[in-house]
Design a protein around this nucleic acid. Sequence first.
DNA 1: AATATAGCGTGTCTAAATTACACCATTAAA
DNA 2: TTTAATGGTGTAATTTAGACACGCTATATT
Lengths: 231, 231
Amino acid sequence: MEVKLPTFDSVFSIDCVIFGFDAGELKILLIERNEEPFKDWLALPGYIVEQDESIDDAAERILYELTGLRDLHMQQFHTFGEVNRHPQGRVITVAYYALIRINGQKEVKPVTQYAKKAFWHSVNDLPKLAFDHSEIFNTGFNKIRRRLNYQPIAFELLPEKFTLTQLQSLYEAILNKKLDKRNFRKKMLSYGFLKELDEKQKGVSYRAAKLYKFDRRKYAKIFQNEMNLVQ
Amino acid sequence: MEVKLPTFDSVFSIDCVIFGFDAGELKILLIERNEEPFKDWLALPGYIVEQDESIDDAAERILYELTGLRDLHMQQFHTFGEVNRHPQGRVITVAYYALIRINGQKEVKPVTQYAKKAFWHSVNDLPKLAFDHSEIFNTGFNKIRRRLNYQPIAFELLPEKFTLTQLQSLYEAILNKKLDKRNFRKKMLSYGFLKELDEKQKGVSYRAAKLYKFDRRKYAKIFQNEMNLVQ
DNA sequence: AATATAGCGTGTCTAAATTACACCATTAAA
DNA sequence: TTTAATGGTGTAATTTAGACACGCTATATT
């Protein structure tokens, strides 16, 4: 028997595509829904915008309530406004993305009852998601793939100190292709915004690699006139 | 005395930044408002989304009602959702842009009473616009400036047949800088998507230039794998 | 102590792309 | 026929991108 759900008028919602990088794999944050419609389905963390909050504020709040994550730097990337994207009524959703470091210790866990749980899932074998969330995810993934070329977003996914090999395997995960080690290093170092530290990797059973830091200040200086326009 | 306006709950709206190119100048389409708030102010063409239309459909309809223009290829570029961006209540607006040829003959003219008139205005000395429309315009202008580098959007602004000098001066208008003539031509022609016609410019009092066409089919072939990613 | 293992770190050559730069040719109008 | 305005063209120098392979070093194992 089909459940009859109430309907509602226009509402805005937010959906979040949160990328993390762990064990050489690119992941996104999903929730298991605890409400109709799509109860028990997997979905992007998302909910309804309140009357008295900006959409940027709403994105922060909603992500916190559904996953316990706070203070991410989220950016909107597209608004989805098909008439029938939500079965109960008109819902236009603004999609945001963020990239964060997954810390082994920090658990993701819903703060409200709206989600049963929150967890990381590899981007590679995603199941079908609730609503049009699969489409939202794809759009977001393409956005960051493109943005990787002209914005320093990769560093948000890595620990503060990282090796060049880690950086490269992250690029490979996002772009989904192999890169040449020597050329990759040459290029990254040539930008001049990586700071070589006096420290090395620890706890590996092979020659330890040098650690680097992303130097935000240098980056800003170098890329003030960033746009690589014609001529 | 201040007019007391009614308030309303959440609504979605659309605002359009429509670029045109005429007489060597980049222009956008503005309306003069005929309703409170901001009656008599200049604004971007924009209005409220209906319950039963997608936002893409709404953008088309609204632009038509306010300017008489139809069948443009509009693309959303950002959603503005500050709480107080509209004095009467919560309005979240999805901003769209389009680029079109301004045909001397084709007049722009509102179809509804919501706008007193519609007209083209140079992007260079825009007055302050209603609501946060100045900000919306700036965001949109930056978007197309960036998009010019990797999408063939310039050709939407030119007549079907154009000279290389016209193309160059359009680039210069959007990027707001001078380009080198020989290098510009070399580069544009090297892409291979410009079709040289057997025709020349007419009605000029100097040596007539060759006319070219943008060949959409060739472009599509060449730029299937367009992204210029790392390596 | 010797050896195996796994990933670290490095340089050169070639091809392609980008930039800087100046003058003669053509047309219409005066 | 002269003038005014824009059209159209090439080369050299520099920079950037891409292909490509091996010895080094830290640890673990025996």
